[in-house]
Amino acid sequence: MSAPIQTINGTEVPVFYVVDEHDHPAGSSTMLGFWLYLMSDCLIFAMLFATFGVLGGSYAAGPGPKDLFDLKLVALNTAMLLFSSITYGFAMLEMMKGRVKSTQMWLGITGLFGLAFLCIELYEFHHMIHEGAGPWRSAFLSSFFTLVGTHGLHVTFGIIWLVTLMVQVARFGLIEANQRRLMCLSMFWHFLDVVWIGVFTFVYLLGVLR
């Protein structure tokens, strides 16, 4: 098949070039790619934070943070997200040990905490809109609803993703592809918690202090 190359004088050593790229195992670059996506998501949130920073003081003679924000509710919300972070961590540890049932259990608990977070946030939004402090009221409220709403939307899609993966794990077990997906969601979930640190600090706490 591959006959040795005969050079003219028969002494020259043939030089080979590797034309094809060497093989990458499937999914070997997924984590880096997903990290890059998270970084671009980070830029979206940075822009929304900047918008809130600029417009956060424009109340248009409407209600301000002191009138609207209930810090006890925000503290409860923060606790929910923090609990969901540690339970997702437990799910990852169980996944590493290859235990399907306890992985599913911790994922389910994580989803419930996420759902509780979302319900509290929707209750807060509903309460504010009911008091006439909807996003149309002032620039402050527009930027508030955009920033916090975008975060809430991320959590919503995170929960949908979580349920999808629970179904996947239930059907196919902890195969390598599912482990990779769970690791991506892990990064996504913890990333949302990082963004929430910014939200409760700069929007709620500093808003009340303003």
């Binding site: 880096l32 990290w35 970084m39 980070c42 830029l43 940075a46 934070f49 600029v54």
Partner: peptide, 17 residues
């Protein structure tokens, strides 16, 4: 990637404000 993002975020945030 993280360092690059932090630089962009700091420029965008501090610049806007």
């Amino acid at each position: 990637a993280l360092i690059f993002t932090i630089i962009i975020v700091v420029i965008a945030l501090s610049g806007s404000l």
